[in-house]
Design a protein around this nucleic acid. Structure first.
Lengths: 175, 175
DNA sequence: GCACATGTAAAGTGACCGTTTTACACTGCC
DNA sequence: GGCAGTGTAAAACGGTCACTTTACATGTGC
């Protein structure tokens, strides 16, 4: 496996499981089996590593969530929980741990949320045949809520969100 | 002001703004104007301090959210954003930063979420005249979603969640 | 055959971490 | 008068932090 890929995958797992600040660079290099010199050549510094991990995660997330229906969207979320665990949104966690003061991290989060919104917009168009900002926003809130509620309620949160989204889409359809 | 109160308020602000790991005990004692010896006599250690901050926040939160209607619930959330800022759920953030491995913190989070659910259950009973677990869960998801979406969408997230909750309650009323 | 890029191992940088210790001052109560 | 309780300031504890440096091993391309 490519060194950079191995580094980013290892880092993502450790960040996800233990948090960003609590994951030291030494633990990371020994877990990934690379030297610290190599790590710094690849990502510059710790914030660069965090941003790289987030951007890679964003790519993977949006490859999974290429859904074109509400059902598929929340099924993808449930799949995601199974693969990556349910410990809240890693973008929000990174933003929070760094106090929101690291531009590259803040930008990664904004981009991720914006892309999610666009995906949901496309789904709403497919489901009810027109744009509906209120419905898009509601579904994004349910998605966000499920992401976080899953930490204490388990994967079932995705299904509850799916059902609520369906009810709202039904209302929008006849409005 | 009472020393313990001053300590917890200062700690809550710093934790909220910079994260838990990034807030050192030295910065905390000097910000609160107390000695580190006094701090450790009061809360034992850093995890004890975090748990104390969370439990105090839970009390304050539930004093604010004594709403008995959907409107009042989300109005309270908007008030909360104005008072405490919108940086995501501090309970989830603490749980995530500590890897979920600190019992006193995990318990504080569970208790907080359970109490929120009970509050929403009472609101649903008042709004539609009977218990409805699906509606309770949906509203909690919207509440959770607004809490986190507010970090990148601003306080308006609370209003969007309020409107979606109303639509769902309307459906449940005629079902 | 030699420069060059890319990797390793390992020690070292100063700063900061959470926590404890030492020594001292002020209060209120029996 | 004396003692317990509660606070302070300041230094010290060993450990870990992010990051750099030094020295050396590769394979690849011209």
């Amino acid at each position: 496996m490519d060194i950079r890929t191995r580094l980013l995958e290892t880092a993502e797992q450790l960040f996800e499981r233990h948090g960003f600040a609590a994951t030291g660079m030494d633990r990371l290099t020994s877990a990934a089996g690379i030297s610290s010199r190599t790590l710094y050549k690849h990502v510059g510094n710790k914030n660069g590593l965090i941003a790289a991990v987030l951007n890679e995660r964003d790519r993977r997330f949006h490859r999974l969530v290429e859904a074109d229906s509400i059902d598929a969207l929340f099924a993808a979320l449930e799949t995601w929980f199974g693969q990556a665990g349910a410990r809240g949104c890693l973008f929000l966690r990174a933003w929070g741990e760094t106090g929101g003061g690291v531009p590259e991290i803040a930008e990664a989060m904004e981009r991720h949320k914006q892309r999610l919104r666009e995906r949901i917009d496309a789904i709403v168009l497919a489901e009810i045949g027109r744009h509906d900002d209120d419905l898009v926003e509601a579904i994004q809130l349910l998605f966000e809520g499920a992401t976080h509620a899953a930490t204490y309620r388990g994967e079932a949160a995705a299904d509850a969100a799916r059902r609520a989204a369906h009810r709202l889409a039904g209302l929008a359809r006849i409005a």
